[in-house]
Every structure is written in C-alpha cells, then in structure tokens.
Design a protein around this nucleic acid. Structure first.
Lengths: 146, 146
DNA sequence: TAGTTTATGATATTCATTTTCAATTGTCAA
DNA sequence: TTGACAATTGAAAATGAATATCATAAACTA
C-alpha cells in the first residue's frame, strides 16, 4: 500500500471525507518532503494547483493531518507553525537553525536516548515527544564572518 | 556589585534610561525567579505595584531586557512568550512539560554537551544556544491515569 | 439518486504582540 | 539648578497568525 492509499485509509477510518482540497494539500506536502513549510507557504503552493481554495481550509486540514499523524508540527521560533511529513525517524532528528541566514539544517541520530531514560527514571516523567533545536551559525555564515 | 546595580550599569552602558517602569518590571521578575512568567502575567504583577503602566511598555521592556541579557526568552509552545531571569546555568537546564496539566518541571545538568561537540565537528555549525523540551506526562498525571 | 452529514470559502473574530504618535520624563551640559 | 534634547511612555490603532461562524456545496451511504 503506497502513501496515498494509506492516507485515504486514515481519513476513512475516522469518518473523514476525501476531498480534492485535502488531496492537493497532501500532494504539496509530499512534494516538499525535505522542507519545513509554514501554513502560509503551503497555502501559496496549494493555490497554484487549486486557486479556489480558502486559507481556512488549509489551516483546518493541517490541524486534521496533525491529529491523524500525517504531518508533524515544528516550531522554529519564527512565529508560525511549520509542518513536515510524518516519518518514523521524525523523533530522531533535530534541527540546527542559523541565526544569521535562517537556514535550517536537519540532523539525524538520537543521542538523546540516554538522557530520556535518565529523566524517566529520576523524574518519573513519561516522555512522549521532544523538541530539540540548536541555534548558532552555519558553516556558510561562519566563513563570511572571517 | 549586586544585581540591581549591575542592571543599572547595563542600561547606562547602552545609553538607556533608568525609569520607574523598568525598575518595577525588574523587581517583579526578580521576585519570581523560579517561575516562567508570560508577558501578560508580568503585566498583571507589575500593575499591582504601578497601576499606571501600559501593556506596551511591558512588552517593550521585556524585549530590551532580552537584548541586554537580563532575561531569557522561553517558548513552551503555548502561544505566548515566557521569560526567566538570566543566569549562567540557563543554558544548562531543560524543561519537562506535562501535556495533561501543563506543569513545567525544571531539569538541571547538561547531558547535551557531547551531542553539541559532535554537531560542531561534523556539521561545522557553531552552537550558541539550544532549546530542549520534553513533552509527556508528569508523575501526578500518570497516577491519575491508573 | 436522494438524503444526510461533513467540508468548504468568505468573512469576522480572537489573541499576542508591535507600531504610532503626542505627551512626558530622564540625563547631561552649561 | 535649569533647560534642552533625546529617550520613554501610555493609549489606541495596527498587525499577523490562527480560529470560529455560517450559509452553501460537496462527499458518502442506503
């Protein structure tokens, strides 16, 4: 079963309807896997394929997709929600955010596991998700500074 | 030199004036060291001491204090900025946020150091700050769930 | 295909934050 | 101490992202 079929099933399972708008929004997100698009950016891209769409529908759909585990909401402290396609490694990657040029670099690997285990034990806190961001200067901006 | 004197000096250094409003806002933040107050919460507390103050002044002052390194801005994904008094260990603590009751538990210790070193080397990214949050259920809420 | 329910688009609303601008208040030099 | 000038303030308006409202328009199901 491919991704789109899985998507259809997830909607049906919960009694949601399969609409053109939802399909187009999914397409845009799938075509931009490596990006971290904001709601507004998604709206702009969707309008190129389906100009009649309303902004509210995009917001509603992103909320729904998040609930269904289709997308994952990111927060880069730039005052807007950003989304990426959900994948299993999503919890295993962190983001490096350049304070100069705003570039977002993805980082795989979960070196947090030990830390999480320690927290669960010492604080009796059940961790479901984490949010790890590093702010600094990317290699390009570091070179410019020389 | 005590904290308040340091504060006065930081303002003067950059040509900013020492106003009653700024003093009262600092007092409120200092009296709530262990908390993570939002701008609105700070406004409410400040008004008890200085009712004439305007909301915009609080927002402006918090922005200024952040710039001067007097406070540190936190983001708990609840749609508002939160602040805490800047202290050197600020970079060394993380927050556990309960998804049920909203409690914020502070966690000391920096187990991220190894991870940061690895990033600086492999990604050529100079880390200045990090933001680490863990979401889950606190011990109280876990007990309630039983 | 009809009928019911869900979804949509346009618009209004909310909420946190920022901007505007005239009036006020610190600061520093005389 | 005063006066001048720049910085600061308060009130209100503006912004910007996100959400709610509501009448109309699609989807699904029998």
């Amino acid at each position: 079963m491919n991704e789109v079929e899985k998507f259809k099933e997830k909607l049906k399972d919960k009694g949601y309807k399969l609409t053109t708008q939802r399909r187009v929004i999914l397409d845009v997100i799938m075509e931009n896997r490596e990006k971290h698009l904001s709601s507004e950016e998604i709206y702009d891209l969707v309008r190129q394929k389906y100009p009649e769409i309303g902004l509210a529908t995009v917001y509603r759909t992103l909320l729904l997709f998040e609930e269904l585990g289709i997308v994952y909401k990111l927060n880069f402290d730039d005052g807007r929600n950003r989304y990426e396609l959900y994948h299993n490694e999503v919890h295993q990657h962190h983001h490096l955010i350049c304070l100069k040029c705003g570039a977002v670099i993805e980082m795989e690997g979960d070196l947090l596991e030990d830390l999480e285990k320690a927290i669960e034990e010492t604080k009796d806190f059940e961790i479901l998700d984490h949010n790890v961001k590093f702010f600094g200067y990317c290699s390009k901006c570091r070179k410019k500074n020389d």
